[in-house]
Write a protein that binds this DNA or RNA. Structure first.
Lengths: 159, 159
DNA sequence: TCTTGACTTAAACATTAGTTTAAGTTCTAA
DNA sequence: TTAGAACTTAAACTAATGTTTAAGTCAAGA
């Protein structure tokens, strides 16, 4: 059950050159080579790649992942350190998701702003009369409408 | 009610050079200058910056934001286009958050893996007997435990 | 045996998103 | 009126994350 870099690339949906790049950066110190010098990936290597891919997609920089990988190579003495590392990344990721949810809420407010503008034919319905400035109460208006709705898409989706 | 670039930087918690960079990239075509050539930011400019900042933090590339800004400069004719743009970014962001939630779930599985390893004093408790390979059933075990728990942190947090 | 495709490396290149630097201008306050 | 802080620009620089290229090795099938 061994794979060459091309198989792995297909399986994990990563470019082969990206895998080589990760290797160079110290993310794959466990990979062995065959007689021809080609990387041979075993099942446990694939498991590892899955973790690396997860951390990458969570936004963890390559350097930090390399640190975690080093810990993994050092055996049971670093188990606690590895737990702490993942615990910390869990916190980071929770914060990131929470921040993105805030951005999503704001984006939806702007969607509502444009939905209502499209329906009115002009953005001016949200302006302070006589000025070229959005009424500061607009957001509060939206919030009020939002509380009356149980499906946000009724409020912000057009058509 | 006008602000100089330094005030804006403080208010929005961005570097002044970042603001100048955004300006150069076409994100702030509406900014006027005073007699001395200094950028003067008005309230509506701040509102705009808030939208830009939201898009940025949602991971939208500067180039794409510039496109949205151009539409905004073109008046009511582009209202629908702007709505569609935000609608599309909403979908992107929802997908992104959903993906990150998947990564969080995986990270928590690995945290459980290390919590139980730390408690056992060795990672070997998860290995296939005799081999240096994680038991493929490990994840299913975790899933089973997860279903029995109503607070995930009881399951994955150490101490 | 020869060709084709997959692998190898090091090094150059690309992109995104800024930051830093250098040189200069202008406002404010002592 | 002069020092210092805040602004201006263009251009060079940085960092992260790969991708591309060039030159070469190797294995498997016609």
């Amino acid at each position: 059950m061994e794979y060459l870099i091309g198989d792995v690339a297909k399986k994990m949906n990563i470019n082969t050159s990206a895998i080589r790049f990760y290797d160079k950066k110290g993310l794959l110190p466990f990979i062995e080579r065959d007689e021809a010098g080609r990387r041979k990936f075993k099942q446990q290597d694939m498991n590892f790649l899955e973790v690396i891919d997860c951390l990458k997609k969570s936004g963890v920089p390559v350097k930090d992942i390399a640190h975690f990988v080093r810990l993994c190579m050092e055996g049971d003495e670093t188990l606690r350190e590895r737990y702490d590392y993942l615990n910390n990344e869990e916190v980071n990721l929770e914060k990131k998701i929470s921040d993105l949810n805030d951005k999503l809420a704001f984006l939806r407010f702007k969607k509502w702003y444009y939905k209502t503008s499209v329906e009115a034919g002009t953005e001016k319905i949200h302006f302070v009369p006589g000025e070229n400035l959005v009424d500061p109460d607009t957001k509060a208006q939206y919030q009020a409408e939002l509380e009356k709705t149980d499906n946000i898409h009724d409020l912000i989706d057009l058509e």
